[in-house]
Design a protein around this nucleic acid. Structure first.
Lengths: 200, 200
DNA sequence: GTCTATAAGATGATAGAC
DNA sequence: GTCTATCATCTTATAGAC
């Protein structure tokens, strides 16, 4: 594969990534992607065989990146408290740059239930990650680590997903919204750790 | 009023509601809606003038119902603690019946930023609801009621939005997922109230 | 590898009969 | 109000020149 191949294929992927995220699969046309990538429509089918296959490729990279990032953070060689802060910081950074990502991912996973979720190793991550072993030791009786971990992701991710509703409801502009999210960097770990038993 | 008496416009709306929620706007065709409603394609444009207008009608009803339900709950004449429990119960009931709703709403609000959010009176709700006055008195110093209320919705709604990821990651089936959500009915109010100052 | 041209079919919307 | 038939356009995908 020559450099030219890679560049063209990557330009198509970059354009598709942007457009799928902005408008979803259904409303993005292959023509748009080709135009945005500065190439001809036929090339899109030359590199990827169909719109669907192009989507699968993009989606796997996006979700896979999301997960493997988590994988690294949750096996990090720091204290439990630091890992919590890393996860929160990492996702607030990511979602500040791409606030559309959670809705896009969740919505497209819903619409493409096959192929996307299965091959991610998500189950293995939860079963084996160091973070979950530590979390299990800190869970109050009768509460599973999964319940608690759901809370961490909920508190971190949901406000970005609901950004249009939140700004509409509060009258906040984009900058004020971002200030709220910055404040949450410090608050979420506090709230989260207060759900656990104290360390020993 | 019998099932037979339901007029055509409502059958179309019901079909559209189901299909838009299942597949989103972009992947739902007017032909499908007409077929599902048991009417002809032309009728859809007779009652509503376009696919877009039909969507706006549906979306306004769905989101409006969501909000006005909240409106009632947040002005209820019970204790603060009871209102918290009502909100959690109400949304867990709703999302158990329609787990697709949060992703659908958030995703379509993103794709149709106009017309949907503005005319809902969401801002007024937050400004005036009894619940928020009580919440403001209980907020720790330096934390706004909006931040705390976001947490309540995050903890309640996000797990339903992420249902496919959660089941894939944990290996849980639908029934096990539902049991987790049932457990959250009791846990979320506890977690939530622990973020506040004690009542006086 | 990249292009032009076009096939083959789906889509939203409308005209007009009844 | 409801139907059939159809239009104009857009869609994905491919054939074939260079």
């Amino acid at each position: 594969m020559t450099t030219k191949d890679i560049n063209t294929a990557n330009r198509i992927k970059a354009a598709a990534n942007r457009l799928f995220a902005e408008k979803g699969f259904g409303r993005t046309t292959t023509r748009e992607i080709a135009t945005e990538a500065g190439v001809n429509l036929a090339l899109l089918n030359y590199y990827f065989n169909s719109k669907e296959e192009l989507f699968q490729t993009i989606m796997f990279e996006v979700v896979g990146g999301f997960i493997s990032q988590l994988q690294v953070l949750l096996n990090d060689d720091h204290s439990f408290e630091q890992k919590v802060q890393f996860v929160v910081d990492n996702y607030i950074n990511l979602l500040t740059a791409r606030p559309d990502l959670p809705v896009f991912m969740l919505s497209e996973i819903r619409n493409h239930p096959h192929e996307v979720v299965e091959r991610l190793g998500l189950e293995k991550l939860i079963r084996e990650a160091l973070f979950f072993k530590e979390l299990a030791q800190r869970c109050p009786e009768g509460i599973t680590p999964v319940q608690i971990f759901m809370n961490l992701l909920s508190l971190t991710i949901f406000p970005f997903a609901a950004k249009p509703l939140i700004t509409a409801a509060t009258g906040a502009d984009g900058q004020q919204f971002q200030m709220m999210m910055e404040q949450r960097r410090k608050l979420i770990p506090i709230w989260f750790l207060s759900m656990l038993r104290p360390a020993n």
